[in-house]
Design a protein around this nucleic acid. Sequence first.
RNA 1: GGGCCGCUAGCUCAACUGGCAGAGCAACGGACUCUUAAUCCGUGGGUUGGGGGUUCGACUCCCUCGCGGCUCACCA
Length: 492
Amino acid sequence: MDEVLSEQEQVRREKLARLRQAGIDPYPARSQRSHTIAQARQLFERGELAGDTVLALVGRLRTVRVMGKSSFAHIEDGSGRVQIYLRHEEVGPQAYELFTDWLDIGDFVGVQGTMFRTRTGEVTLRVQKLTVLSKALHPLPDKWHGLKDVETRYRQRYLDLIANPEVREIFVTRARIVRALRGYLDSQGFLEVETPILQPIYGGAAARPFITHHHQLHQDLYLRISDELYLKRLIIGGYERVYEIGRDFRNEGVSFKHNPEFTQLEFYEAYADYHDIMRRVEEMIAFVADEVLGRRQLVYQGHEIDLSPPWRRLPLRQAILEATGIDFQAYPDAPALAAVMRDRLGMQPDPRSNRGKLIDSLLGTHVEPNLIQPTFIVDYPREISPLAKASPDNPGLVERFEYFIGGMEMGNAFSELNDPLEQRERFLEQGRALEAGDEEAHPVDEDYVRALSHGMPPTGGFGTGIDRLTMLFTDKASIREVILFPHLRSRE
RNA sequence: GGGCCGCUAGCUCAACUGGCAGAGCAACGGACUCUUAAUCCGUGGGUUGGGGGUUCGACUCCCUCGCGGCUCACCA
């Protein structure tokens, strides 16, 4: 493998070789650390360090200022940054030469010394001993402008994290959101479970799956598109409250709010209906806001949003009527609805769409972008909701809601269909759609129907995208900003 | 998949109507014992995303391929 090295890489390789010639291991296994940088600063600033206390700190060199026989630099560890100060007469000629000639910005070092304050007041470690912990062979991005190239930021996220501290914050916030969700659900008696990612039949959402293969079993398997059908089997099994936070995979287009793999929270609650779930969801999200932000108001893409319950509940029919003037109840079949969408709105609906899909596209194009404040859109068409219980007063609708914040769909829920015979009928309807070319229709899942036929209590279920919640809480317009390693096309 | 925009030194960006590819940071050499985007003097560094074409001459115009961004379609 003939690597073409840039000038700067060549220089660093030469420094590496010189370190080794001098008997210095540029990649030692062991390091000495008495405090994190944040701890050291705190102790010093509180006056809790005797002036002669020697601390051992570690970190990456981020800036270097050599001024003849003394030098300043900043090192950074996971907790923060601190300035270090080296004097030739204090560290000796060998260590001083190591610092000025063989080390570079980006290298990891260990330093031992005492804390003091410079004339300008900056807390600084006066170095007595300096060691190399890891030599970097590639230069860091510009110290002042950082790393801006979006493609490099995603492909080499570590550089993004090094150069752009605010990016590090995003993923701290993401972890806190997940922790808060767990905290809420655990406190409410939910059991966290893990269900299969490799599934013999996919289901629980309208999406094309990724397909893989088990060689020994000679069996095609699907990466799950949702956790739903397994979690409901656990309700059947007698757990009354279960949840799972995990990765789902959908073989669909990539966009600012879609990544092929994404993280979803789903929970299922026996003896709850979709009204109960709405109350729980608004309570849960408000709890997350309290935990993560310390308040229930946030700004998303310039919109001030208040997450305080109760959230608005708006029937889908009314939402579409208000936004478009079209009452979908007045159009009992797909061709009639498609015609009015064309004539009145100038839309060009896919002629293969069923009525439910047409209604859903009206929601997506004319309603969703304007749902800035938290809103539950309730009562969806039956034909796009094969796992939801029918509405008692309107057989064409189901007890389902989606919730929207900041113009984005954040999650989906319903009173779960627990009539096994009706469930089989719904699957058969889906099967016909699948055969007719709807690649996102559900396949028939007889094993799930059998599970239902052993009896599932009335149950409410809910799913929400962790990635989109993180977008909301970090004010990011693109899902790639909240996924550490978003999917990108391979190079070559 | 369609449309638009972009890709120039390790990083951030320039380069007029087609006329010698440049700056700052980083790097290298030198000066400098309280600097902090250190400063000062000097030096090197380019397949201008890949390939092809037009032209006396291409970063610039044309074709094509790759990757990315935005957007539409699609997508709970």
